[in-house]
């Protein structure tokens, strides 16, 4: 009875002061403790990156660089894929694995190529990602490669309880692998199955590591974190095409700056029949599928 009366009267002075003091202490401790990479002062970040480089170089036996190249001003990245050209050869899948240092075992693939029946059209309910004929394309089938759609309105970043994933200025959705707690909410939220979890310690054979890495992209990951396509952030922020664009034998993959009226991507959007996956979800993908014929 006495307690109830106390509560009704509000917290005592002692309660209030001790709560305020512990809140202040917690705030100070958090500010002093570890930070998300993006929030770190540049000087401290660079120190951390040099330390990462040292660790990776030691583990993989090559000189690894970890860049933190920021978004280029006036650039909004977008991607387009020609559904009338793709033959489903999966060259992109493996070029991506090598460029972005995905785990070979357990196997992580950022790109998944779905074979679909021409009669049924673009419909994931009947798609087959495990097709393995002698030669592609198969009669009566077409192919839809799917990776991160780099949504303008990404559902994955909204559900992250710790703020370990976000959309960068140039439109690339990235993950801070050192801040990710591995809860996989983002994987559940992604309507495209584009996020992948490291269920075990990733393995990359010595000598196969791509030593040219970006802190928010292809640097080696650890067990228990989520990863995904970053439009090859380490290449594209340096002006290069993503690895999948350069490897595609039929030239079905196109990449560029949405804000540049002379870019390939603008030509496609303005002149071709374009679609995005699951448009009704209002995720507003930066990844366009088109028919080049």
């Amino acid at each position: 009875m006495k307690r109830d009366a106390d509560d009704a009267a509000g917290p005592s002075r002692r309660q209030f002061v001790s709560a305020a003091a512990s809140a202040a202490a917690a705030w100070i401790l958090t500010a002093c403790g570890p930070k998300r990479l993006v929030e770190m002062p540049k000087e401290r970040l660079h120190k951390a990156l040099r330390e990462l480089e040292r660790q990776y170089s030691e583990t993989y036996g090559t000189a690894v660089t970890v860049a933190d190249t920021p978004a280029l001003p006036g650039v909004q990245f977008a991607y387009a894929l020609d559904l009338s050209r793709c033959i489903g050869c999966r060259r992109c899948v493996y070029a991506c694995v090598e460029e972005n240092n995905q785990s070979r075992d357990p196997q992580v693939h950022w790109i998944r190529v779905h074979a679909m029946e021409k009669e049924k059209g673009v419909d994931f309910s009947h798609s087959d990602p495990y097709y393995e004929p002698k030669e592609v394309p198969e009669e009566g089938r077409f192919y839809v490669p799917v990776a991160c759609q780099q949504c303008e309105n990404p559902p994955c970043t909204k559900v992250c309880p710790v703020g370990a994933t976000w959309k960068e200025e140039d439109g690339i959705v990235v993950i801070d692998y050192d801040w990710c707690i591995g809860c996989r909410y983002c994987m559940a939220a992604c309507p495209y199955g584009a996020r992948h979890f490291n269920w075990a310690e990733p393995t990359i054979p010595k000598g196969e590591l791509n030593p040219n890495t970006h802190v928010l992209g292809n640097r080696p990951r650890q067990k228990g974190v989520v990863e995904k396509c970053t439009f090859c952030i380490q290449r594209t922020r340096a002006g290069r095409y993503p690895a999948c664009v350069e490897v595609c034998p039929v030239g079905a993959r196109k990449f560029g700056n949405l804000l540049d009226p002379a870019s390939e991507i603008r030509y496609i959007i303005e002149k071709k029949r374009v679609l995005v996956l699951k448009e009704d979800l209002r995720t507003v993908p930066r990844f366009f599928y088109f028919y080049g014929t």
Partner: peptide, 27 residues
């Protein structure tokens, strides 16, 4: 027309600079 715009065929190089084209006969 599409090839000149960089839309038909494979491009390598720089999305914002020097690009390498292939001739029709390469593919």
């Amino acid at each position: 027309r599409d090839w000149r715009a960089g839309v038909h065929g494979r491009r390598t190089g720089s999305w914002n600079g020097q690009k390498s084209y292939l001739l029709c006969a390469h593919c």
